[in-house]
């Protein structure tokens, strides 16, 4: 059993005009076997939620709690969170010059397992993961995210998801900037991951498009740092038809 429990989470960032509150009390529980989609307009705080749970230093948690199987995630360092079973597929993966993909993957796997992976099976696993995401075998020799196309960056994120195999995956706009073929490849990777026992997915997206390939169990509409509405997959269809306007108006009105 795996449960990620976010309770009344409040987060602010430092700006030139002082601290600005982005998340204004978010409560969300994700259990294993579940896929939750968070949808919302730009600037609603979707990415802030993802990065705060992963522990990015830019975000200052001012209230609330995050636990993974009862353990206090907010008390953990960034790498401890990953070792506890959290994974964040980033919207803008970062270039690490001079560090090859294969070195990076091996280092990460070693850190997560506490021991180096067995060379023979590991090389096979890496090649298989790259191939499934339509990444060339020479991809491993390239420097992490350096000179990658937008699609390659996202496929590399999902290859990591499959190889590092966390308990709980947060996917931050993994679909943005992908053409339809790449979107299918990436979605297939996410589906392979979540078909396993004991995995949870928090899928953050601006568009409903990816939800045709990765069907969520729950949909949450995020507006102005709060969850404005929740429902099943049918909520996504309503958003597709009507957009976010009514929520934004409600929020301004309130």
């Amino acid at each position: 059993m795996t449960t990620l429990e976010i309770k009344d989470l409040q987060v602010s960032v430092a700006t030139d005009d002082g601290a600005k509150e982005i998340l204004k009390g978010v409560t969300l529980t994700i259990k294993d076997g579940e896929t939750h989609a968070i949808m919302g307009p730009n600037g609603s705080g979707k990415s802030t939620l993802a990065y705060s749970v992963a522990g990015h230093p830019k975000y200052d948690v001012t209230g609330g709690s995050v636990t993974l199987d009862g353990e206090d995630v907010l008390a953990m360092s960034v790498d401890e969170r990953a070792r506890a079973g959290l994974f964040l597929a980033m919207q803008y993966p970062v270039e690490v010059p001079g560090v090859s993909v294969s070195n990076f993957l091996r280092t990460a796997k070693t850190a997560l397992d506490g021991e180096a992976p067995k060379l023979r099976t590991w090389v096979k696993d890496v090649n298989a993961a790259l191939e499934q995401l339509n990444l060339d075998p020479t991809f491993g020799t390239r420097n992490v995210n350096e000179g990658f196309s937008g699609g390659e960056k996202k496929r590399h994120e999902i290859a990591q998801l499959e190889l590092l195999n966390p308990k709980m995956a947060i996917l931050d706009e993994t679909d943005s900037g992908l053409d339809i073929d790449a979107l299918k490849v990436v979605s297939a990777g996410v589906n392979r991951f979540r078909e396993q026992e004991g995995k949870g997915v928090l899928l953050i997206t601006h568009y409903t498009r990816i939800l045709r390939y990765i069907e969520p169990d729950f949909v949450h509409v995020f507006v102005d740092g709060r969850i404005a509405e929740q429902g099943g997959p049918e909520l996504a269809d309503a958003l597709e038809a009507e957009g976010y306007d009514k929520y934004i108006k409600a929020s301004i009105g309130g």
């Binding site: 992963a54 990953a82 690490v96 590092l164």
Partner: peptide, 12 residues
């Protein structure tokens, strides 16, 4: 860069 690496479990 450090955040990216650490978010994959790599110690500081």
């Amino acid at each position: 860069q450090l955040f990216y690496l650490r978010s994959r479990g790599v110690g500081e």
